[in-house]
Design a protein around this nucleic acid. Structure first.
Lengths: 160, 160
DNA sequence: ACTAAAACTTAGCCAAGACTTATTTTATAC
DNA sequence: GTATAAAATAAGTCTTGGCTAAGTTTTAGT
């Protein structure tokens, strides 16, 4: 029994020629998304830490864990990684501080986040969904798209 | 030395009252995104498998791996999981087929993907970025936002 | 000042998703 | 029809990011 070869004269073979991107192009797309994934946790954490510091004066592990919806040990491990990678400093049993690198990341991350959020709102998406979607989308929007979003939002609000 | 208490009279405390969502609300947001993440791989795989079947007549592991930009063993493990979870069927050394569940997932996934892609194009984003961004965004767009995207695209194309 | 509660850490478990190296099976080409 | 190449699997490693249970340190309250 043949391996259902690509060159069989079965019915499906008719569809050869359906446009698929080249394997390399497509692989580059997926690699790009995977790359973005690596920074999602970092960005979410530093953004939250920055918010906590601004709103309450400090970033405590328990608050980070509660606001992320995870347990303290899980948060603790990620904070350790963030420290290893130079985004935060923290000493045992003390609260967490952002390094300059961490602050920069937090700021650009919040900026992206807000641009996406305001764009969705300007488009007419309900607040609840705008908040949910922007949280997921912010990590996957190129600079170009972000600029387009920003321009659109500006146009819309000037129309009011 | 105090633990830099929330109730200290330090400078930062002035900012108490900066609006943060409630911990529970924020946790729900992050949980939602984490939930979406769990389905990303599944959706990407079944969409690709469906594309391969339509374009070449079959979905071979080697092509899946090449197009995803990963090694065959990695693809193999994920296919095993997809099979465990009822999205595909496959026998050792044979190519991969979608179950009904897999086909449904592939179709709705491709539809979302295309809506997002066309929306970005309609907004004026360059094709390269539209392809990249839609690949990452498709998994984080609510039904409401998707509907808004679709309406916008329709409006734009009728303006041409 | 001491005790109880809260916060944090440590240790250990698990699954997903990436990798390499080696082996087995299938397909191809002569 | 057999040798070689290609495809798939197997085995083992690593990191991330989730968990629980148990222990330690700090904070808070009386």
């Amino acid at each position: 029994m043949p391996y259902f070869s690509r060159f069989s004269i079965g019915v499906r073979t008719i569809s050869i020629g359906n446009t698929l991107p080249s394997a390399d192009e497509q692989a580059a797309l997926f690699s790009h998304v995977r790359e973005a994934h690596k920074y999602e946790a970092i960005e979410d954490y530093v953004e939250l830490i920055d918010d906590l510091i601004n709103a309450t004066g400090e970033a405590r592990l328990v608050d980070i864990a509660n606001r992320m919806g995870i347990t303290q040990p899980t948060a603790s491990k990620t904070i350790a990684r963030l420290q290893r990678e130079g985004y935060v400093t923290s000493e045992p049993y003390r609260s967490i501080f952002l390094t300059d690198k961490g602050k920069k990341t937090a700021e650009s991350s919040r900026e992206r986040h807000e641009i996406v959020y305001r764009f969705l709102m300007a488009l007419g998406v309900q607040e609840e969904n705008a908040r949910r979607d922007s949280e997921g989308m912010e990590h996957h929007v190129s600079d170009e798209t972000l600029a387009v979003f920003e321009r659109f939002t500006a146009t819309q609000s000037s129309k009011q």
